[in-house]
């Protein structure tokens, strides 16, 4: 770590860490969003026997120790893992790569994303969908013109929440892809590394301040979107 002044401008090294963090979080959230929305839809509207099991599986990363999630990812996506070998045939390696960090973040953020999306889908009034059906809209069109627009603020809130959770991801990431500066060293991992270094406290506090700012911005955005969802759904 370079000896940076606590009041000085953000250094190139810090920018590198922040931009890697933002990239990992953005890719993890955008990659997980379609699956997340599908699962949220199933949980909100599905009627099948395995629903309880699916619900439990989705929430598992929320209650499991993150180190266990990281280890399971290592088993699955490592060089010897079934998914890892499959991806290796396609020339894709996740271990010790930033893409692996994105996968770990996505898994950890998944329950939060699904939860917000599910609530917003459940909040859409079935009666409005029925009305649209009688006006000549097919199921697909009802989804595109009624359900999705009404659920959209909640879906966006889920993305922002997932993004914030990804930014803070630590345990699963460090277990799965290790702590490699410039490749997998996201903001929390860099703070951890700084704290392990003698005299690294100043660097750690600067990074921590950045983390607080980013997280706050994400939460404020999420809250604003939720409010808009409330206004939309109760607008009738």
């Amino acid at each position: 770590m370079t000896a940076a002044l606590s009041t000085g401008p953000i250094t190139a090294e810090e920018w590198g860490i922040v931009s890697l963090s933002l990239r990992v979080s953005a890719v993890s959230v955008l990659g997980a969003a379609p699956l997340g929305f599908g699962v949220a839809w199933l949980l909100a509207r599905g009627r099948f026997a395995g629903l309880v099991v699916l619900d439990a599986l989705v929430h598992l990363p929320l209650v499991l120790p993150p180190v266990v999630v990281g280890w399971l990812l290592l088993l699955g996506f490592g060089a010897q893992g079934p998914a890892g070998r499959l991806l290796a045939d396609w020339g894709v390696t996740l271990m010790f790569r930033w893409t692996g960090a994105a996968l770990a973040s996505a898994v950890m953020a998944f329950p939060l994303m699904v939860r917000a999306m599910r609530l917003s889908i459940e909040a859409v009034d079935h009666k409005l969908e029925a009305a649209a059906r009688t006006l000549g809209a097919s199921r697909a069109r009802v989804f595109a013109t009624i359900t999705l627009p009404l659920a959209m603020p909640g879906v966006l809130a889920g993305l922002v929440l997932g993004f914030a959770r990804s930014l803070g991801e630590f345990g699963a990431t460090i277990t799965f892809v290790s702590n490699i500066p410039g490749e997998t060293q996201t903001l929390p991992l860099a703070i951890y590394a700084a704290l392990q270094t003698p005299d690294g406290e100043q660097a750690a506090s600067r990074l921590a301040l950045i983390a607080v700012g980013l997280s706050l911005a994400a939460l404020v955005t999420s809250e604003a979107l939720s409010r808009r969802m409330g206004a939309n759904v109760h607008g009738l």
Partner: peptide, 28 residues
């Protein structure tokens, strides 16, 4: 339902809250 050409006026109106009146009128 979308092939029955029925004009259903619901007791609770069921206007689409995210569309203005003209868009509601022109939906069908």
């Amino acid at each position: 339902p979308h092939k029955r050409h029925c004009g259903y006026v619901f007791q609770d109106y069921r206007l689409f809250p995210h569309r203005h009146v003209e868009a509601n009128l022109l939906y069908g």
